[in-house]
Design a protein around this nucleic acid. Structure first.
Length: 482
DNA sequence: GGTCTCCGCCTGCCAGGAAT
DNA sequence: ATTCCTGGCAGGCGGAGACC
């Protein structure tokens, strides 16, 4: 037995009423119809599975997977599971008499039933392949005569469609009576067998999933699994099976058997590993995984190479002019669209979240839906992210510096700039002034370099011309009328 | 009263070394 | 090869004093 090292194997169901089978529990007399009331009060498994149960001889993890893996397993061509798969492949779902007789009683809230009819005497109507396929659980797709692994992958029907006039079975060339296939199992029957097997193994569903997907032991040492086991898990996790992980999660989130909403939904403090109910754990996982990613995203965003840094190089020779963190006065002009593009690319998730939060509610007036445009969302989100990044790293200040220059140029009182500096919307007034001085020095250096340039060039008519530099000063002082 | 300059403190960046 | 840790360094911030 391959139990979890830290937990005792807990039987999935009590053994008090071991004689009751699965159907008698959830569907008995049609009384247990409300899944919200309580869990099934009696065991879902038979204590003694049928003698021809293909799963009954498997009593360990390895035996279980080994039995499912190859054609030498206990599942053979004569196995009901295989017969159903064969009929599914052909696209001709024809319930046999046994199949009809084994249909579960009707209920509106059967835990695992896929039948919607309310009359047990009426066989399930014929359906096309896609309709039937959509109601099969993943485990119902197992085949045994072929490679078990390949049955997880998407298959295309290999057999010809049977026309109405075609006989159901082809006579044997030897004249022997044709072998009759065993009736196909429905979903409930398959689940019943799986549950019986789990009970024989003394496993809960949780233990089964844990051992199925665990890849490291308690010492953090990788667990060696069989090749087929690895491929099965790989195909499922890679989304190559008919029912993907997202399908399963969706079923968990919408199942009436899951606990309802409470304050632990979207929990941020308690680790999702410590939350047991499925919806609370899933929503907490989503929040905490997103939070972790947002943290790493912002950590990357404030690195010098990200483009948000603003260093005003004032060295006389401007050797570092090519550095990506060095900015000039001209760079402030297009800082907002540059930053917005940066956020959309590097802080993709944060940009999306803030966009969703800032999205205004569309208004309907006289049947015309209008979206407010007075505050462009992209600008708002870009400035919000710039403040957050500036809070994280004071070098990532391209937009705060733009805002500070605007405030300073607008003769805003120093106290207002100090308050905004405290709030993270702009640097301190000293830093803003230093930046302006740096820009001024950059301009002065550029002018001196141009002024020294007295080279001779050729014009369009190949005449030699001497460069003439003209400096034009513009008075841009801002006068305040008292 | 406003502005400028200086200086100490603090924080982020970066390079180098150690650990994994 | 990658990640983590640590120490040095640069520069921003904010307070205090001087100047206008």
């Amino acid at each position: 037995m391959n139990h979890h090292p830290n937990s005792e194997p807990v039987p999935l169901f009590a053994s008090a009423a071991a004689s009751a089978n699965f159907h008698s529990v959830s569907l008995a007399s049609g009384l247990t119809t409300n899944p919200y009331d309580s869990a099934p009060p009696v065991p879902l498994f038979r204590r003694n599975p049928a003698a021809n149960d293909p799963f009954q001889s498997t009593n360990s993890y390895d035996t279980f997977f080994g039995s499912l893996r190859t054609g030498t397993s206990t599942l053979t061509q004569n196995n009901p599971l295989h017969s159903l798969t064969s009929s599914t492949r052909s696209g001709d779902i024809r319930p046999t008499i046994d199949h009809i007789l084994n249909q579960p009683p009707p209920t509106g809230h059967h835990l695992f039933s896929s039948h919607a009819t309310s009359d047990p005497s009426v066989p399930a109507p014929r359906r096309d392949f896609s309709a039937y396929k959509s109601q099969l659980p993943t485990l119902g797709q197992f085949t045994t005569s072929d490679n078990f692994v390949t049955s997880f992958q998407t298959r295309t029907p290999k057999r010809k469609e049977r026309t109405p006039g075609m006989p159901l079975e082809t006579p044997s060339p030897t004249g022997a009576p044709p072998k009759r296939r065993k009736p196909a199992l429905d979903t409930s029957e398959k689940l019943k067998k799986i549950f019986a097997l789990l009970k024989d193994l003394d496993w809960t569903i949780g233990e089964f999933f844990h051992h199925l997907f665990s890849h490291k032991d308690e010492d953090n040492i990788p667990i060696s699994r069989s090749q087929s086991h690895g491929l099965i898990v790989q195909n499922f996790l890679a989304g190559k099976t008919n029912y993907t992980v997202s399908d399963i999660i969706n079923l968990w989130m919408t199942s009436p058997y899951g606990s309802g909403h409470d304050e632990r939904m979207f929990e941020t403090e308690t680790s999702y590993l410590d939350i047991r109910p499925v919806r609370q754990a899933l929503t907490a996982f989503a929040v905490q995984a997103s939070a972790d990613y947002l943290g790493s995203e912002s950590k990357t965003a404030v690195k010098p190479a990200s483009g948000l840094h603003a260093v005003i190089e004032t060295n006389a020779d401007l050797q570092d002019e090519e550095e990506e963190t060095t900015i000039q006065w001209m760079d402030l002009g297009n800082a907002v669209p540059r930053a917005a593009a940066h956020f959309r690319e590097i802080q993709r998730v944060a940009f999306h979240f803030l966009n969703v939060m800032a999205e205004p509610t569309p208004r309907s007036r006289n049947g015309v839906i209008t979206i407010p445009k007075s505050r462009p969302r992209e600008n708002v989100v870009a400035h919000c992210l710039s403040i957050l990044d500036f809070c994280k790293n004071d070098r990532a200040r391209i937009l705060p510096l733009c805002r500070g220059v605007l405030y300073l140029a607008s003769c805003v009182p120093v106290d207002i700039i100090a308050i905004n500096s405290r709030l993270g919307t702009m640097p301190s007034v000293n830093t803003i002034k230093s930046a302006l001085k740096g820009f001024s020095q950059q301009k002065a250096i550029a002018i001196r370099t141009r002024a020294r340039d007295v080279s001779v060039i050729k014009d369009s008519k190949c005449r030699l011309r001497t460069l003439l530099n003209i400096l034009i000063f513009d008075n841009v002082q801002h006068f305040l009328r008292q």
